[in-house]
């Protein structure tokens, strides 16, 4: 066994895939110097032809990746800031994502978009603290939000091998995680397959990304009174609806903790689907950022708008106590 950090897991996934498949190449700003450390060592090992520093032209280099993918390459783009996805949104959503359908299946666009340190990074303020994974799930781009180092490795490898565009969000709140793993057991993780981190019988908590760790801590705190099952969907599109339904068969009670803005966030979709199609014995709850939140700078204000353990604890207790539907 060895200790694997989340950051190293990302780096290792890219390295392994570049080693395995010569068409995998890396585009991004400062990727040779590896300012995020995710691409550390790549240019030395694979050369400047496969690890390209880009000018500050997010729209264009995102489009370049599409063109390269149409011509047989498998680019990975690293975006240093989650909000850069807004600049590249047209090229990802309206171009890369739509080519397969619009061409009637003539082509495929295997590009991976990696956002290390998505969400709040502590003190980076309004334009560096977004967590826009729900936007991509909404428009139908395959979206992964790994919570652990092993899942970060497995999902990034899967994204790089996938024939469609895939966005991988590596939450800032998870980037520091470390995990004892058997290196030989590191393996691709399929899209659309969730993971139960902790089994329970009273309430299912669906937690996205770094919030999985908060959910596990709260579940442990409450373990004397409430048995909490922690379900990590791992990918938001496709979503493991079957896995969620199976969990709710056991618990019948649901809380979602999601770092999206409330309205139109994935948490709302999870609640809606559970209400329409799954076994719920009490009204569900979600803990999210507020409607249309912009994270303010000061630490107290930044924290005030993110889902907290206190909010999650209260939600779990409320749902656990709530009278059943009649």
């Amino acid at each position: 066994m060895t200790i694997l950090s989340y950051l190293k897991a990302l780096n290792r996934a890219i390295t392994d895939e570049m080693e395995r498949d010569p068409t995998v190449c890396v585009f991004g700003e400062d990727v040779r110097a590896a300012v995020t450390n995710v691409t550390a060592g790549l240019v030395k090992r694979f050369g400047a032809e496969r690890v390209l520093d880009m000018p500050i032209s997010e729209q264009a280099f995102t489009g370049v990746a599409t063109g390269a993918a149409l011509s047989g390459q498998r680019p990975l783009i690293e975006y240093q800031i989650p909000a850069l996805l807004f600049l590249a949104f047209e090229q990802i959503v309206n171009q890369a994502h739509k080519f397969s359908l619009m061409t009637g299946g003539q082509t495929r666009v295997p590009v991976t978009y990696l956002v290390p340190s998505s969400g709040s990074r502590d003190g980076w303020a309004g334009q560096h603290s977004d967590h826009p994974y729900s936007l991509f799930a909404h428009v139908g781009v395959k979206t992964a939000v790994p919570a652990t180092p092993a899942d970060a490795y497995g999902l990034l490898v899967t994204a790089l091998r996938d024939d469609d565009p895939v966005v991988v969000f590596a939450p800032a709140g998870a980037m520091g995680r470390r995990e004892d793993v058997d290196p030989a057991a590191l393996a691709p993780v399929p899209l659309g397959v969730g993971r139960i981190h902790r089994p329970g019988t009273d309430v299912t908590v669906v937690a996205v990304g770094h919030l999985v760790h908060d959910a596990l801590e709260v579940a442990e705190e409450l373990s004397g009174t409430i048995s909490v099952e922690v379900f990590d969907p791992r990918t938001l599109h496709p979503f493991d609806w079957q896995g969620l339904a199976a969990s709710l068969e056991r618990t019948g009670r649901l809380v979602v903790v999601d770092d999206s803005n409330r309205s139109c966030g994935i948490g709302g979709e999870i609640l809606a689907t559970a209400a329409e199609q799954m076994r719920l014995t009490a009204p569900p709850k979600r803990v999210t950022r507020p409607d249309g939140a912009v994270l303010p700078f000061a630490e107290e204000l930044d924290r005030a708008l993110q889902p907290s353990r206190d909010q999650l604890r209260t939600a779990i207790q409320t749902v656990a106590k709530a009278g059943g539907f009649r």
Binding site: A60, F61, T66, A68, L70, Q91, N94, Q95
Partner: peptide
């Protein structure tokens, strides 16, 4: 204009 970088990427890949 959206295809200009796509063509550039195809050229680079070729």
């Amino acid at each position: 204009g959206a295809a200009a970088p796509i063509a550039t990427g195809a050229a680079w890949a070729a």
